[in-house]
Amino acid sequence: MLNDSYTILKKEFGSYFRTPTAYIIIGVYLVISMFSTFYSAYFFMNNNSGLGSFFSYQPEILVILIPALTMKLWADERRSGTLEFILTQPISYNAIILGKFGAAVLFGILLLALTGPFVIYVSFLTELDWQNIVSGYLATILTIMVLTSIGCLISSFNSNAVLAYLFSVFVGWLLISLNYDFMLAPLFPLSENVTYLLSQSLNFYANYLDMTQGEPGLDNLTYFLSLTILILWINRVTIEYKKQ
């Protein structure tokens, strides 16, 4: 299965660079990231030993850019009619899903890696807390994984890539911005503790901030990984279901 996944990953990852999409996404990502770091997150007015200004707007930026990577993954197969062909090949569904997902995640990691020169540059301007930075990057990679899985799932529902992009942005935005506390409010009189736990468990930003501020835990890893696995699982079930 891993070999099949790797083959698909290589093919999908390479396909990004065959069109100008990859270069546009890289350019846009770097410019928006730096713009938000220096202007929206007041880079010069913060201590930034843990690159707080850089990490503070990453989820918002990735919500816009990751769907651009995932929108075509399934939608194009569907539109061009190759989906049925792929699904009839002697390759497991998991291998296909993981291959496509992995390619988009790898591209996301490449985006992050390209901010390396910025980190090196900042290390000459202020003393950096490298452990905190590693934790921040890990949080961003996990965010990429969650957003990619959402993008993959929505792309598998649609044959129109633009629609898939818009839906993915919308769902991703809901995930990172929505405060679920109002939905949990009726539970509050029943148990304060359980409500607090639920609120913390479901809050994307609480988990993201834990990590970017240098305090990652098993709870944060479980949140991001279980969400990714859950969505990928639904992705697999829907594909199987559609085929039937």
Partner: peptide, 16 residues
């Protein structure tokens, strides 16, 4: 997620 969160702070790393 709730179970892991219940396990609490002992499973938190201080990466600072």
């Amino acid at each position: 997620n709730i179970t892991v969160r219940l396990l609490g702070s002992s499973l938190k790393a201080d990466m600072t």
